[in-house]
Amino acid sequence: MKLLRIIPDDTKFPFMSFRRVSFPFSALLSVVAVLCFFFVNMNFGIDFTGGTLIEMQAKNGKSDIAQVREAAHGLSVGEVEVQEFGEKGDVSIRFGLQPGATQQDREKAQQAAQERVRTTFEKDYDFRRVEVVGPRVSGELVQSGTLGVVLSIVGVLIYLWFRFEWEFAVGAVIATLHDLVLTIGFFAITQLEFNMTSIAAILTIVGYSLNDTVVVFDRIRELLRRYKKMPVEQLLDLAINTTLSRTIMTSVTTTLALLALVLFGGQVIASFSWAMIFGVVIGTYSSIFIAAPVLIYLGLKVGAESAIAAGHDAAPAAKTSAAKPRVRGPAERPAQ
């Protein structure tokens, strides 16, 4: 049986030389993403803005969107967004926080507004989903979402610092921030709704991208131990080429799974799945074209002074502390 091979054996792509293209390219994309974040309004969901989202389905299977829109505007709930989706007469109604003198009043006004929508439409429509997020809760969700992303990056930085040398930790975090910024830009440009599930997507992308990066870094560390005289660029190229097959294989299996989610998982998690697919692509790209070349700029050096007898056959896991490659920062680099 002839088996499939996506990546041929013994590839010799000069990945490091691509950095002159990939760095400016990524920098440009990041700037665009940041600009989009600030100047194109993100489509924040009610998790973060507070407000009410109601999804209803016409009882006879056919919705009258114009009538719903008109009736919804007459309910005095502020600015209303009415959308049609699906094939069975689904309509979503979304509106923001309701005004009130005290916080209690605002929460109550929110409930009252929802009540008005219900009484108006319950004759012709089934209510499939009702979400009301008050001002207090939405503020907290913004907080915990941001905190989550920051904490995960810090946590991973500490772990990598502990397991590798500081250059690797910094390189991984730069690549991760790159992915994070681009993913947020992706949300801004596509206008996919950004809600708590999107935070879950972002954290998973962070995890996935790091996973990819760590695999490459593990190989770099191993090669550093084995080849004491190889130029740094050549060594990084070798590390990426030898792991390339795995990197692509895993991206493919993950994307296949995500594709199934996009196509069949339903509308609720479609935005999550699209973001994840984008994240897998960008995470794979960044671990090859950003994380590894950044190490050059951070002053990674091959062949430290004393050859540590980390035998090429030893299992790296068993000897982590003793077998750490001696990689030193620029400050302590001997004059050459």
Partner: peptide, 22 residues
């Protein structure tokens, strides 16, 4: 094996934080 552990721990950290905050 070492690579598997390293790469899964990073994923685990992100997931654990999500668990506590979500």
């Amino acid at each position: 094996f070492a690579t598997i552990i390293d790469s899964n721990v990073t994923m685990f950290i992100a997931a654990a934080i999500l668990f506590f905050l979500g």
